[in-house]
Computed example of a mutant assay.
Amino acid sequence: MTALPSEIRNEEELEEMLSRPSDRLVETLAALDGDITILGVGGKMGPTLARMAKRAAPGKRVIGVARFSEPGLKEKLQGWDIETVACDLLDRSALEGLEKTANVVFMAGRKFGSAGNQSLTWAMNVQVPAMVAETFAASRLAVFSTACVYPFVDIAGQGAREDLDLNPPGEYANSCVGRERMFEHVSRTRGTRVSLIRLSYAIDMRYGVLHDVASAVQAGEPVQIDSGHCNVIWQGDANDIALQSLAHADSPPFVLNLSGPELVSVRRLAQKFGERFGTEPVLEGKEQDKAWIVDTSLQQQLFGYPTVPLPRLIDWTAKWLSEGGRSLGKPTHFEVRDGTY
């Protein structure tokens, strides 16, 4: 394995690292038949996941589907030899007109702004999954979900396991339960092979929990610590494992918590970044004894330990911000506890 650098100097280096496939992923995709379609490729993770899939399986076609409202994204993907198809997934006829590849990664969804337009959130998180599951019932599906489908669990424990009953707070989180149920229904009734990936906080230097905490500390702004614990994972590892999960897709669905194994203390994160920036962090609130945390034992058993450990992620984030690295301006709102986004 290539040694990890001490810092990531620019976005070109960052996106290369985020899309660097593991040997295991190369082997996994080589053993799977057919091409790969990525629905919702235009999000934060989609472009580098698509690039990783193409780098891991250059002989396969990788097709990125999105509305492509972000200027330049389509051209960037095409420069990585990824085919692009513009499609509004709420348009049933357009969705049904898409090519039915053997493998599909579903990444579409809506979170922020949900409190102002709940009906659109439910349409994107439940109606679209129902239509996608029916349209691609003959495909192998890796479906991005979220740890928000769980209730808060005791921070003294190991975190929520995949078999925990789903009873989360708030409309957004419940719409995510609905997303899973739509894919589960088609999987159980039509035999569709599905993997459900409950992701908890992917880390890219330009966004994520570490970026949020570090940015606040650097600016002298308060860090809320009521939700004082979480799990995080390097986005490159998340991309890699999500693509590998296609080989585990099953009926009924295979379910996987996807995150780092450490229970991360937000207070300690703020203190670490304060040391890096030479400032005392401003902390607000009090840690609660329950949080959205997950048990990643199954992930470690099947896919091994993430390649980028937490201390390196902290170092990279601190150096990125110290040198004026760009932010995507998309806060995670990890501190929200009532499910209102």
Rank of each mutant, 00 (worst) to 15 (best):
residue 217 V to F: 09
residue 209 V to T: 10
residue 238 A to N: 08
residue 132 V to L: 07
residue 228 G to E: 10
residue 233 I to G: 05
residue 124 M to Q: 14
residue 208 G to S: 01
residue 191 G to M: 07
residue 172 Y to R: 01
residue 208 G to K: 00
residue 203 I to G: 02
residue 225 I to F: 08
residue 170 G to T: 07
residue 144 F to V: 08
residue 152 F to G: 03
residue 237 D to S: 04
residue 262 E to G: 05
residue 229 H to A: 13
residue 144 F to W: 10
residue 166 L to Q: 09
residue 245 S to G: 10
residue 229 H to M: 09
residue 163 D to W: 14
residue 228 G to N: 05
residue 174 N to A: 13
residue 248 H to A: 13
residue 252 P to V: 12
residue 207 Y to S: 15
residue 246 L to C: 07
residue 253 P to N: 02
residue 243 L to D: 00
residue 165 D to K: 03
residue 148 C to V: 12
residue 124 M to G: 10
residue 218 Q to E: 14
residue 161 R to C: 15
residue 166 L to I: 09
residue 173 A to C: 11
residue 166 L to Y: 14
residue 260 G to H: 01
residue 205 M to P: 06
residue 130 A to G: 04
residue 160 A to G: 06
residue 134 E to S: 14
residue 242 A to H: 08
residue 182 M to C: 08
residue 166 L to W: 10
residue 203 I to S: 11
residue 185 H to N: 05
residue 149 V to I: 11
residue 147 A to V: 12
residue 199 L to C: 05
residue 222 P to T: 11
residue 231 N to F: 14
residue 125 N to M: 04
residue 135 T to P: 02
residue 262 E to I: 08
residue 164 L to G: 08
residue 240 D to W: 00
residue 207 Y to L: 12
residue 145 S to R: 00
residue 231 N to P: 09
residue 233 I to T: 07
residue 232 V to P: 00
residue 214 A to D: 04
residue 152 F to P: 06
residue 230 C to P: 08
residue 243 L to C: 02
residue 262 E to Y: 13
residue 243 L to Q: 01
residue 183 F to P: 00
residue 231 N to W: 09
residue 206 R to P: 01
residue 239 N to M: 05
residue 234 W to C: 03
residue 134 E to V: 15
residue 128 V to N: 04
residue 215 S to Y: 09
residue 184 E to C: 12
residue 238 A to E: 10
residue 135 T to S: 05
residue 244 Q to Y: 11
residue 161 R to H: 12
residue 177 V to S: 05
residue 225 I to M: 05
residue 212 D to F: 03
residue 150 Y to C: 06
residue 183 F to T: 02
residue 254 F to N: 02
residue 209 V to R: 00
residue 244 Q to F: 11
residue 189 T to H: 04
residue 208 G to P: 00
residue 240 D to T: 01
residue 130 A to N: 03
residue 164 L to Y: 14
residue 222 P to K: 02
residue 262 E to P: 06
residue 132 V to Y: 09
residue 212 D to N: 03
residue 127 Q to V: 14
residue 258 L to P: 02
residue 212 D to A: 07
residue 206 R to G: 08
residue 219 A to Q: 09
residue 222 P to S: 13
residue 254 F to V: 13
residue 197 I to V: 15
residue 238 A to P: 04
residue 209 V to G: 07
residue 178 G to Y: 07
residue 208 G to Y: 01
residue 156 A to G: 12
residue 214 A to N: 00
residue 149 V to W: 13
residue 243 L to V: 00
residue 126 V to E: 07
residue 212 D to L: 04
residue 178 G to T: 01
residue 242 A to F: 14
residue 251 S to C: 07
residue 133 A to N: 06
residue 234 W to L: 04
residue 210 L to H: 07
residue 192 T to I: 05
residue 178 G to E: 02
residue 179 R to Q: 12
residue 220 G to C: 11
residue 258 L to T: 07
residue 154 D to M: 09
residue 231 N to E: 11
residue 186 V to P: 00
residue 172 Y to M: 08
residue 179 R to I: 05
residue 205 M to I: 13
